[in-house]
Nucleic acid binder design. Structure first.
Lengths: 332, 332
DNA sequence: TCTAATTTGTGCGTATGTATG
DNA sequence: GCATACATACGCACAAATTAG
């Protein structure tokens, strides 16, 4: 029996007939793992169809994880397990408690409709580029956290535009791509407005902003709020050897500084929530039990995961701002 | 170790794999200045590849000024102080706050003396094997966290023995390889002994041990301690819907369970440190300020990173146990 | 000096996947 | 669907230098 069966009258497009033929051949074990498939030239000649049509079919098989290709050699069978229709490439920056929540809710919503591979670039541009390039052509969808990396948009643009989604943080170069992201500037501004009734007892507003991993939008939102209300504010990159003045309130994106401030407060025997205040970022269980509760500005990572999964599955293309909220606890 | 490592399924073209093999051999001083390289005929025969592919690789090396050739004689190493830097393959299990500390301290100590690529196996054996195999021949050093994976030692043994280092957790099969690791069994035992004066007020010892990611040594150390002192102990896989009895002390490797226990304690209005106790694993800043301080058993991840980097750079081969300690706070 | 074997060097052809218009 | 250029891989033939015998 010939490997590839083509019927002109079939309702199936030719390229799908090719995909089916290969899948069936694998199922019937006429094709084994690492077997060499006929070259696209050969198939296109033998069946009198365009090279591009065969290529389309083989690309589809590659996306599904069924075959792999080697330049100058040919196409080979990668996996004989029956594959799901969709394979998703997920590139995170780092894994922490919040990201894990996002990842798990995404997985749950995707269910068994796709196979998901997750990777981490760890804010390293070289690693980012290597991973994106290596994955290119091997997945049906690409979901990427560019974080605050500046030079990666050109790299992302090399992926098939219609299969790319941006996650958590977008930027000027990527704003046309579908995304589920935080609007850091707006979120921090609104959260501060919401907490205004508690903030009025403080007379000095301090943002601790190292600026390596954190998005610039935070600074803008914070500054806008402070200037609108004519507040006495300051933006510092770290909290080394500072003392806390009574009446100060700290806005702290990094948990490292959160602990430094709390410890300094303790050593000065200040009362958190009256003598000085804290607003932290990214809620997590432990923060409920730190010092009777830390007030946080946090996006809903669980919702981010489900929104993204729904968008990917329904093949929608939207730019969605994920909801964020101020969770008020005893530290304000 | 063979001079030239070829991976059929690598994303790198064959000729580039050859180039890299030679570069790494020079970098590791397995090839000295004016050394005679194997002839292109020999290489093509031995590896079953075309003579022209080898030629392509050697031409590339010539262009880069790394080798020279003499007609009728062969290829020779031209320059050993080439621009090639050390390439390090780093395979972690997962990234969390502690691992990040380890990674960053390693990077800092390595400085610009090497290019470091980090990967994550996420406790998945297939992924582990794929990553190790793909990397083989492409790096000058291989640093690997086998974690609690059982079947991976044969895979690790395929790497060049003299370039492999084991990190964080070793095992019986890998004990000959150089490593910087925790001795979980000893560490937990010693930590509990050190805290004995505080533990005496408790009458029930509970280890919450899911056993998926955590090393078996913890269980052995815990059990040994309890049996030595004839304590009433229990090992449970999770903390779902449990109530806390007064006089219980929990040993908790996973932070997920840590929060569950603390919240349960609060809902029962129990006093942590008197009514019940907690020992957590892996210290991090937040734990200083959770419930006035959580007692932890923790290894020094920062030191682990620098120790490892120094060992790699100096080309030493030792089995080093990384120091671990009990940090006593109010939760005991 | 001649020869055979081995080596690099060169040229040409074929086949394959990849990218672009 | 067609055309073109490019990168990778393999194979063959032959020339030129070296070495061993």
């Amino acid at each position: 029996m010939k490997l590839i069966q083509l019927q002109a009258q079939s309702s199936l497009p030719k390229y799908k007939q090719i995909v089916r033929s290969i899948e069936i051949a694998i199922q019937e074990k006429r094709l084994q793992k690492n077997d060499h498939l006929p070259s696209i030239n050969k198939i296109s000649l033998e069946h009198g169809i365009s090279r591009d049509t065969v290529l389309l079919a083989f690309d589809e098989l590659k996306k599904r994880g069924i075959v792999y290709s080697r330049l100058g050699k040919g196409y080979f069978v990668k996996s004989t397990e029956s594959q799901v229709e969709m394979r998703i490439f997920l590139l995170f920056d780092e894994l922490n408690a919040f990201k894990e929540e996002l990842y798990l809710s995404f997985l749950e919503q995707i269910g068994n409709k796709a196979q998901v591979d997750i990777f981490f670039h760890h804010f390293n541009e070289n690693l980012f580029q290597k991973m994106v390039n290596d994955s290119n052509g091997n997945y049906s969808k690409y979901i990427i956290m560019p974080s605050n990396l500046k030079q990666v948009s050109s790299c992302i643009k090399q992926l098939p535009r219609e299969d790319v989604y941006i996650l958590d943080q977008t930027n000027e170069q990527l704003k046309e791509l579908p995304s589920v992201h935080q609007h850091f500037e707006k979120d921090i501004f609104r959260a501060l407005e919401k907490g205004m009734h508690l903030l009025q007892k403080y007379n000095r507003f301090i943002l601790i902003f190292p600026g390596e991993k954190e998005p610039e939008g935070m600074v803008i939102g914070f500054r806008t709020f402070c200037e609108k209300h004519q507040l006495n504010y300051e933006i510092i990159p770290n909290f080394d050897t500072k003392t806390i003045e009574k009446g100060a309130v700290f806005v702290i994106p990094s948990d490292l500084h959160l602990v430094q401030v709390i410890e300094q407060g303790k050593s000065q025997q200040l009362n958190l929530g009256t003598d000085y205040g804290i607003i932290s970022f990214n809620d997590m269980p432990l923060k409920k039990v730190v010092e009777n509760g830390i007030t946080t500005i946090s996006t809903d990572f669980k919702k981010m995961g489900t929104t993204l999964a729904k968008m990917v599955l329904s093949n929608e293309k939207k730019q969605i701002e994920n909801p964020s909220d101020l969770i008020i606890r005893n530290s304000l």
